[in-house]
């Protein structure tokens, strides 16, 4: 992780200089937005909340906004709050919602009557990758061993992770599918949080585990868990874990987070928000936050993000069907 932070810091310098350039070339940033309204469909403290509050910090530090009003309405992976954003927030300028892949899964499994696709997608901001681990004394040396065992009899390979239908479960399902096993037979042990799941793995209660890399990184470094593979497309700089793809399992997945505008905003209002997000991402303050939190910067804005979102819905729905959850 240290190496990775170092690397990001190098990137940060680049980002910062870009930021200066950006500020110089964008006169719009001279007039800061009076008040940004931010909707977070999760309780304070989680990943979306952290992303939202970090955005607020960076926007204020870069003089892009004067203040922000944050509304938290949490529950069930965001589907409790989403209707409020779609209805009460309709057409509001200077308003954004923070959400991500988790909400995509939650909308599908809960058969929610509302969808993230009804919002106006602004930008994908960050990604965190998934990691497959095994207890320190596991017979699995790498992901190939794990994949072989999974293929032989999935019921004998209990896998611990977060709640059913979440990113961890989806990752396990994608791997099972890629190795040619019935995803429904995967012995997935769902936990209410990352802590209990990690305890199960370190204590050797299960054969393997799936989680966000950040959540397990320290236990991997300390030798309490053995990392078998990461879900990124290519190797993550500074992280000495091979990818799934390198080991013959053709799966890549990232837990992304992004921002959305309410439905009914004008094209100009939409553009203003995209400009705001782009200027924020270039700011030194945001780059510093990325480095601290180990978030990968994967900015994708406007229509390109909209198309990506459609794809994510299709893929997630297909996996959840395979898992028997949708």
């Amino acid at each position: 992780m240290i190496e990775r932070r170092e690397f990001l810091r190098a990137g940060l310098l680049g980002g910062a200089s870009l930021g200066i350039l950006g500020a110089a070339s964008a006169p719009a940033s001279a007039q800061a937005i009076e008040q940004l309204q931010m909707f977070i469909p999760a309780a304070p403290g989680g990943g979306w909340d952290q992303t939202g509050r970090s955005l607020e910090q960076a926007m204020k530090a870069a003089n892009l906004i004067k203040s922000a009003q944050i509304t938290n309405k949490g529950g069930a992976g965001g589907v409790v709050g989403l209707p409020e954003f779609l209805n009460q927030w309709r057409g509001r300028p200077n308003a954004i919602m923070v959400a991500g892949l988790v909400m995509v899964g939650s909308i599908i499994t809960n058969k929610a009557p509302v969808s993230l696709l009804s919002t106006v997608p602004l930008a994908r901001l960050t990604e965190e990758y998934q990691v497959v681990v095994a207890p320190a004394n596991s017979p699995f040396k790498d992901l190939r061993d794990f994949a072989a065992a999974l293929k032989a009899d999935p019921a004998k390979v209990p896998i611990a992770g977060g709640s059913a239908g979440g990113t961890d479960h989806i990752t396990a399902g994608l791997i099972a599918k890629a190795v040619g096993t019935d995803a429904r037979r995967v012995a997935y042990v769902a936990n209410a949080g990352g802590g209990p799941a990690a305890a199960m793995i370190i204590g050797g209660q299960v054969a393997a585990g799936v989680s966000g890399l950040g959540e397990f990184a320290e236990n991997i470094k300390a030798g309490k868990m053995k990392a078998l593979g990461v879900s990124s497309d290519k190797r993550i700089a500074g992280v000495d874990i091979p990818t799934f793809k390198e080991q013959g399992v053709d799966v890549s997945i990232a837990n992304w987070r992004g921002v959305f505008a309410p439905p009914g905003v004008t094209d100009a209002q939409r553009k203003a928000m995209i400009d705001l997000v782009e200027a924020t991402v270039k700011s030194a303050a945001w780059q510093e936050i990325l480095a601290k939190q180990d978030w990968a910067n994967v900015l994708l804005t406007g229509d390109a993000f909209g198309a990506y979102l459609q794809e994510e819905f299709k893929r997630t729905e297909a996996v959840l069907k395979d898992l028997g959850l949708a």
Binding site: M1, G45, G46, G193, G195, A199, E218, K221, K292, Q293
Partner: peptide, 23 residues
């Protein structure tokens, strides 16, 4: 390992200092 809601939030505070909580 965060084993309660409060512990989980305290851990996320560690992260905002760039301290990785772990063994």
């Amino acid at each position: 390992l965060p084993t309660s809601a409060t512990a989980a939030i305290m851990l996320s505070a560690f992260q905002s200092y760039g301290i990785q909580p772990g063994p």
